[in-house]
Amino acid sequence: MLCFVALFVFGALSVFSAKYRPLAARAFDCAARKITLRPCQTGLDDEIRAASIAGIMRISPPAAAFANRHFEALSVIFTLIFFASMIVALQGIANFAVYGNCNGPEGGFCIYSGLQNPAFLKTPKTSEGIVAGNLSSGITVVEFGCYICPYTKEAEEGVQRLLENYASRVAFVYKPFPLAAHKNSFEAAIAASCAGEEGKYWEYRKMLFANQSWFAQEGERAFKQAARKLNLTGFDRCYDERLVENKINATLQEGKECGIYGTPTFFVNGKAFVGQRAAEEAEAEIRRLLAEGRA
């Protein structure tokens, strides 16, 4: 069974190096024979088996004995896992190329994002966005977030705790960075800013994160319904005429210039933290700075 894995691996390597082509040819012959229920004649299956068992034997002879006795069954399991993993990985790469996230339009944790290093992010220069806390503090926390992003939502509890515990000692700036991968994310950013125009930003934000998937699904109807609950009289006009669109575009552009590749992204005095645990990491950094007497 491992001939199929070998065919895939050596076939891929053959594209880049001719020395793998004879191996790929042997693997192809072996795989073709396996499909037609004939024994492999190139000896590649024996070589793979011997190399595998010898490798295991160096670590654990009993494990080698077990692997040898159940080699065919283990090979089938390994082959199935290998190809299932390949399908998921290729799907993830395709999603990453199209949506910027390996989970597709739904978003979520994406391992490929780890390929991008927070150390290379540029520090935002402006204070454009929603501002809170002590603006004269020596510590500034900037969050780039998307109201429809599940990870921004997960980080929200940390953000609220941060505002509660450090409001007098830290300046906080939220910069909307709606991700195109999330449905109605730009509209959500406009809606929140419109609420902010009437002094109800934080209340509206709380509603957005509390019912994130509903807002994502329903869009305008949901945004306006939420506004009515907060008695926002100018909301519909602000939303319909997109009066705050320039502000959203400005923070979006700033985020792109900073190299933001995922939300939420936090900057604590220029030091960046990205992903699910970014709020906790940002808080730890705040504590460290406060201990140094930077506030």
Binding site: D46, E47, A50, A51, R58
Partner: peptide, 14 residues
């Protein structure tokens, strides 16, 4: 019951 090729290859490898 070990295949002769496997024995030879394992002797080489080990």
């Amino acid at each position: 019951s070990i295949k002769p090729h496997q024995v030879a290859l394992m002797c080489d490898s080990l």
